[in-house]
């Protein structure tokens, strides 16, 4: 092997080709850890990707390559947002659509947390609870909400109940299963230490198992509310007069593509904002996650 540093600069082989990153590993700079998979900052690349996508979008619409019926221009989406914000959609201002959809998703989410977290913990703690509740949850969980939407409507009517319940069901399973898995996070030494101080089973649950399960519960909540937004449009398919999902669906029936795309962006923006909030909460509530 030749010592590279003693070679003249023009003799060094270039190593910047894409495949060289796969074929050979080189030493890291100080401050990085050698061999960590996928390490490196992605912010600039992400921003560049978004700008590029918008540019391509703008280019294909500005040159008339794609008809506005299929892909309206970026500007027209912004215009549509302002228009619906000011003039409303089917008689209701945009903020009301946003508010009612958010209320449905969050109502279902809070209900799913209130029932799913205690039930998941109970399933983790007790083989009896696990024996009873595991089959029903595992049976309905993989079924798409659209499939049981008709049942919800037959049973609970076309009011708010069936809408919230549909979203609830899609949020509930991941939250309950996350809480159940979280029970296993406590180290046996932590549990033994508490018992050797004379703790009761309830105290061990309250002071050891529940706090150790918090990271998994928070992750499950993040995943759960994601499912909630996914189900929103299905929930607002029948007999809704307000809501972002309703707006998207009815706009699509009139081929108002710009309203459809605007609604999709609104849903994405709210869901993303909530995800950021959850990540913030995670950093505040469980700063110790993965550190012991």
């Amino acid at each position: 092997m030749t010592d590279q540093s003693t070679m003249a600069p023009h003799l060094r082989k270039p190593r910047t080709s894409l495949f060289s990153t796969f074929s050979r590993a080189r030493a890291t700079r100080p401050g990085e850890t050698y061999g960590v998979p996928g390490q490196g900052n992605t912010t600039w690349l992400s921003v560049a990707t978004i700008l590029a996508l918008i540019f391509v979008w703008w280019a294909v619409t500005a040159t008339g390559l794609v008809k506005p019926l299929f892909v309206p221009s970026p500007q027209s989406i912004v215009q549509k947002f302002v228009d619906v914000w000011v003039n409303g959609f089917t008689g209701a201002p945009l903020w009301q659509h946003i508010l009612i959809s958010t209320a449905r998703v969050f109502g279902a989410f809070l209900l799913a947390c209130a029932i799913g977290i205690p039930l998941g913990l109970a399933m983790g703690m007790s083989p009896i609870m696990r024996g009873i509740f595991d089959p029903p949850i595992e049976i309905y969980r993989p079924v798409p909400p659209l499939a049981y939407l008709p049942l919800m409507i037959i049973w609970f009517g076309i009011g708010e109940t069936s809408k919230v319940l549909l979203i609830f069901l899609s949020v509930f399973a991941p939250i309950a299963l996350g809480a159940r898995a979280g029970v296993r996070s406590a180290a046996i030494e932590q549990i033994h230490a508490a018992y050797s101080f004379g703790a009761s089973r309830w105290q061990v649950l309250r002071h050891v198992i529940l706090p150790s399960a918090m990271p998994e519960i928070l992750t499950a909540m993040r995943i759960g509310i994601g499912f909630g937004w996914t189900t929103l449009v299905a929930a607002e398919m029948v007999a809704a007069t307000k809501g972002i999902g309703y707006m998207v669906l009815s706009a699509s029936q009139f081929l108002q593509t710009s309203t459809v795309i605007m609604g999709i962006f609104v849903i994405a923006a709210i869901a993303y904002a909530f995800d950021l909030l959850m990540r913030f909460l995670e950093r505040r509530l469980v700063p110790w996650k993965g550190k012991m």
Partner: peptide, 29 residues
Amino acid sequence: GADRSVVFQKHALLPWLNVRDNVAFGLKL
């Protein structure tokens, strides 16, 4: 029982509590 305390090799502290609350944990229980 509380008349026999155990010190483990590791993993037995509660990372969501600070040093003082970890030390006071048994008494609080």
